[in-house]
Amino acid sequence: MQAKLSSPIPVGISQCLIGDAVRFNASHKHSRLCTEQLGSLFTLIPFCPEVAVGLSTPRAPIRLVGDPAAPRVLGSKDPSLDLTVPLQHYAEQVTQRHPELCGFILMQKSPSCGMERVKVYRDNGHPATGTGSGAFAARLMARNPLLPVEEEGRLHDPVLCENFVTRVIVFAEWRELEHRGITPSRLLAFHARHKYLAMAHQQLQYRQLGPLLADLRQQDVQKVAERYFTLLMQCLKTPANRGGHSNALQHLAGHFKRVLSPHERQELSHLIDDYRRGQVPLVVPITLLKHHLLNHPDSYLGEQAYLQPHPAELSLRNAI
């Protein structure tokens, strides 16, 4: 059920989040969530765009100025200092030099690394009406639209954290598939493994995945694979809600209807309903499904990523 990856997953991270004192005031924003919990699964590769473009530590602060849709990064006290282009170029360099990255964790509210909701100022120094994205983060996401990217602050939300980790692992599994070579049979197996995971996230896009793979012998497999992975990552970017999870759980439960007793089927159905109503966490019906799978082995279900998309010791489904 769990992903079988050949090595730890490389994930980029804003350097201040690992405890390095690289912020403008020579402080850090060490995140134990990142270094201890997620660090057990990921190989965290640190980047500090502001240091990389030549700023010292400590340094005068910078901020976003102008149009929130395309702000400039200027010195807070010295507006003649314009770091917009250097920060954008550094994002290009990271993209080119680190194709191994399967995700990125950014520092929130930063004029360089903020993913969204970064304060923007007008030229006269007053706050603008909208917010923007840091220059490095915006270019990084533009150049890597499928790369799972999240802010450290948002990762404290259990749903967003579980979603980010799931997307990173799926991204890494796809990289492994590309390394081995994409063939029709491997592409179909990848889809079969991730079918219920996609079902839980976004029904409309999920329904488009299967038809993409119809009659692969008559299509360019590489082009189909690119379209498939783009759609899959777009699908997974929508965090699964209780309705989506319940739908996937019911479909999985349907595979056991001929081997479970009436009492066992009723118990499983009640637990799924309890989860849908918010009375139990997702781990409860998942655990019962895995128990039935242990007693009634099924090779197809045994390969389903949905039942264990990430290491159980992370406990990411205990709070959603």
Rank of each mutant, 00 (worst) to 15 (best):
K4H: 13
K4E: 14
S7F: 04
P8K: 12
P8Q: 05
P10Q: 03
V11F: 03
G19T: 05
R23P: 00
F24W: 14
N25V: 01
S31E: 02
L33V: 07
G39F: 07
L44I: 10
I45R: 09
V51C: 09
A52Y: 07
G54K: 01
L55I: 01
S56Y: 01
I62C: 05
R63C: 10
V65T: 08
V65P: 01
D67S: 01
P68T: 09
P68Q: 06
A69N: 05
D82F: 11
V85E: 12
A91M: 09
E92D: 11
T95A: 11
Q96H: 15
R97P: 04
G103T: 08
K109Y: 07
S110C: 12
G114L: 07
N124F: 03
H126Y: 03
A137F: 04
V149C: 15
G153V: 09
D157E: 15
V159H: 15
E162V: 03
F164V: 06
V168E: 09
V168P: 06
W174N: 13
R180S: 07
F190R: 10
F190G: 05
R193G: 00
H194F: 01
K195T: 11
M199G: 00
M199Y: 09
Y206T: 03
Q208K: 14
A214F: 05
A214Y: 05
D220I: 03
Q222V: 05
A225S: 14
T230Q: 10
L232S: 02
L236P: 08
T238D: 07
G244N: 11
G244S: 04
N247Q: 12
A248W: 07
L249F: 13
H251T: 04
H251P: 00
R265F: 03
R265E: 09
Y275K: 02
R276V: 00
Q279I: 05
L294K: 13
N295T: 09
L301P: 13
A305K: 08
L307D: 12
N318S: 14
